[in-house]
C-alpha cells in the first residue's frame, strides 16, 4: 500500500550542520538543463532533507547566481516548501471541499488534540508533523488522511488515535509472517532458465534467491528475499547506497541485461522470468525499491 513518492519519503532527518554541499551541487547539476529550474531544485532538496536548510539555499544562490531574496521568496511562496525541519512522520489531512462537507475539520481538530499541536506544527519530540492540504483528489472517499505516504479514506474522529499509533509503529513495515499479501516468487535466469532459488540460505523464512553481482571490479554473491514485497538482502561485499550493480547468473555466468530504465531513478531494470508465468523487473540501483511483477 506504499504510494511511491519522493515527496513524502523522509527516512532520514537532517540537521542544518549535516548538510553536505556536495549533495546540493549534485542536485544543481541534475537540474541545470531542465525546465522549472529553481522550483525543481528546491523540490529535490526538500525531498532529501524534509525541509529547506538555510545553508542549502545559500549554496543554491551562490551557484545559480540568483539572489538569495529571489530564492527565499520562492521557497516561502509555495506550500510544499518548509523552512523548518519536519517530524519523523508526516500526517496530512485533506481539507478539500468534499472532505470539508464530510467533517474533515473535526478530523484535523482531533489530530491537533491528540498531538498537542496545531496544523503546520511539529511535535516537540519531532515525531509528527501535522499538515493540511487543499485537495488530494480522492474526493469520493473523504475525509482523506495521508500518513507517510499511506492513504486512509473515510476517516472519522474516532479513528484518529489508531492512525497515529499505526504511524508511530511505522506503516512501511510489513508483517512478513502474517501479511497474506506477501508471497514467494521463484525467479529464473533469462539465459539458461535455471532457478536462482537457494535452499541453503534462508531469508524471511523462505529459500533466498542467489545471484552474483559485479561492481567496481569486484564480484560477490547477493542473496535476496524471495518474497515479493520484502527488500531484505544479504551480500558478500557491502554495496554502497545508490550504486548501480550488474547481476550475473550463478549457473551460466552470463550477465543479465538491463533493458528498460527505472521510472524512479533511471537506473537499468532487469527483467527475469518468474516460475508460474510472467516476469519480474528489478531496479539495479542499491536502495531503489522499484520492482514490477508482470503477468502479461
Amino acid at each position: 500500500m506504499k504510494q511511491d513518492t519522493a515527496i513524502l519519503n523522509r527516512d532520514n532527518l537532517y540537521a542544518e550542520e549535516e548538510i553536505d554541499s556536495k549533495d546540493i551541487l549534485r542536485i544543481l547539476e541534475k537540474y541545470a538543463r531542465s525546465r522549472g529550474g529553481l522550483v525543481a531544485i528546491l523540490e529535490e532538496i526538500q525531498s532529501k532533507y524534509g525541509y529547506l536548510p538555510e545553508t542549502a539555499l545559500r549554496t543554491v544562490s551562490e551557484r545559480t547566481g540568483r539572489s538569495l531574496v529571489d530564492i527565499y521568496g520562492v521557497a516561502a511562496f509555495y506550500r510544499f516548501f518548509s523552512l523548518k525541519p519536519k517530524g519523523k512522520h508526516l500526517a496530512c489531512v485533506c481539507l478539500g471541499t468534499a472532505c470539508h462537507v464530510r467533517g474533515a475539520q473535526e478530523v484535523v481538530e482531533e489530530f491537533e488534540q491528540q498531538l498537542g499541536i496545531t496544523a503546520g506544527q511539529t511535535t516537540e519530540d519531532r515525531e509528527f508533523t501535522l499538515e493540511t492540504v487543499n485537495c488530494l483528489g480522492a474526493c469520493a472517499l473523504g475525509p482523506v488522511v495521508v500518513i507517510d505516504g499511506h492513504y486512509f479514506s473515510k476517516v472519522e474522529r474516532s479513528k484518529v488515535k489508531q492512525l497515529l499509533d499505526q504511524g508511530r509503529k511505522g506503516l512501511d513495515k510489513l508483517d512478513i509472517e502474517k501479511d497474506e499479501r506477501i508471497f514467494p516468487v521463484d525467479v529464473r535466469c533469462p539465459h539458461c532458465n535455471q532457478s536462482f532459488k537457494d535452499e541453503t540460505f534462508i531469508i524471511d523464512g523462505y529459500p533466498s534467491l542467489k545471484a552474483n553481482v559485479a561492481m567496481d571490479h569486484k564480484q560477490g554473491w547477493i542473496r535476496m528475499s524471495s518474497l515479493y514485497g520484502s527488500y531484505n538482502v544479504c551480500t558478500e561485499h557491502e554495496i554502497p547506497e545508490d550504486m548501480i550493480v550488474s547481476f550475473i547468473c550463478p549457473h551460466c555466468d552470463s550477465e543479465i541485461p538491463g533493458t528498460s530504465t527505472c521510472s524512479e531513478c533511471e537506473a537499468p531494470m532487469m527483467p527475469m522470468p518468474v516460475d508460474g508465468g510472467g516476469r519480474i523487473k528489478i531496479c539495479t540501483r542499491r536502495g531503489c525499491k522499484n520492482r514490477m511483477l508482470d503477468l502479461v
Binding site: 538555510e54 539555499l57 539572489s67 538569495l68 531574496v69 529571489d70 530564492i71 527565499y72 521568496g73 516561502a76 511562496f77 523552512l83
Partner: peptide, 24 residues
C-alpha cells in the same frame, strides 16, 4: 536586492531572507 516578498495571501510580508541582517 536586499529585501523581497515572502509567503503569500494573508501571510505575505516583506523582509530579508531568513529575517537575518542582509549581507547586501
Amino acid at each position: 536586492k536586499a529585501i523581497g516578498f515572502r509567503s503569500r495571501g494573508e501571510n505575505r510580508s516583506i523582509g530579508t531572507p531568513f529575517d537575518a541582517k542582509s549581507d547586501v
